[in-house]
Structure formats: C-alpha cells, structure tokens
Amino acid sequence: MVIILEITIALLSIAVIAYPFLRSEKYKSIFEKLGTRDKILAERLRIYSKIHDLEAELSSGDLTNSEFLLMRDELRMSAAKLLKQESEPPISVSGNELEAEVARQREQSRQASEDRDL
C-alpha cells in the first residue's frame, strides 16, 4: 500500500515536471511574446491609464487645473518617448538599455503622479 503511494507521488512529480518538454512550441512562443516591444507598449498604456486617473481627479476637484496640466504634460512626454521607441527598429537598442529606459520613463510618470499625495 505504502509502496504504491510512494510510486504514485514520484511518478506524479516526474510527469508534472516533464510536461513542458512535450509541449515545446507553446512555451517558445510565450517566451518570444515577452519581447521588449510589448513591455514598452504595456508601459505606455499604463501611462495612459494614469492620465485618465488624473482627469478623473480633476473632475472630482482633487486637483487644480494648473496642477493637472503640469502633471499631465509630464506624462504625455513620457508616453511620446515610449511611442518613439516603439516605432524605431528594435535592433538598435540592447536589452539592458531598454530596461533602463523603461525604468526611467516609468520614473518620470511616477514623479507626476506622486504629487497627488502631498
């Protein structure tokens, strides 16, 4: 009885672990999809959503008009920069630099949004 249980556990573990090797193509495509372009796109969409948040805050009266415009323009600039990168051929930028760039853009957009906390 115990032996059967032991073998079941061992086999189950091996099966679950080995499964990805039987379905290689699927995982390859997933990994390719995680390319840098998608990352930039996602980042840009995040900035868009932040701008929409700002608009909501303006309409609810949490922000003054000038504050709103100042923050929104910072975010717009960040989005434009990302858009520029998206339209450029991807070969020119190495992975690490892109990381850094995305981080920088994100930082700038955050700078704009953090002022809401004051």
């Binding site: 556990i9 189950l12 573990s13 679950v16 672990i17 080995a18 499964y19 990805p20 090797f21 290689s24 995982y27 390859k28 997933i30 990994f31």
Partner: peptide, 21 residues
C-alpha cells in the same frame, strides 16, 4: 531553454506535494 525554465517552475510547485505528504 524555455522548456527547462518552465519545467523548473513546475518542480518548485511540486515541492508542495512532497512537503504536504
């Protein structure tokens, strides 16, 4: 090798089985 990476992640999940048994 993406398959190996995914498979390693699944191996991490499987440690729950061992520990809980």
């Amino acid at each position: 090798l993406p398959e190996l990476i995914v498979s390693s992640r699944r191996a991490l999940y499987m440690s729950i089985l061992s520990a809980s048994v």
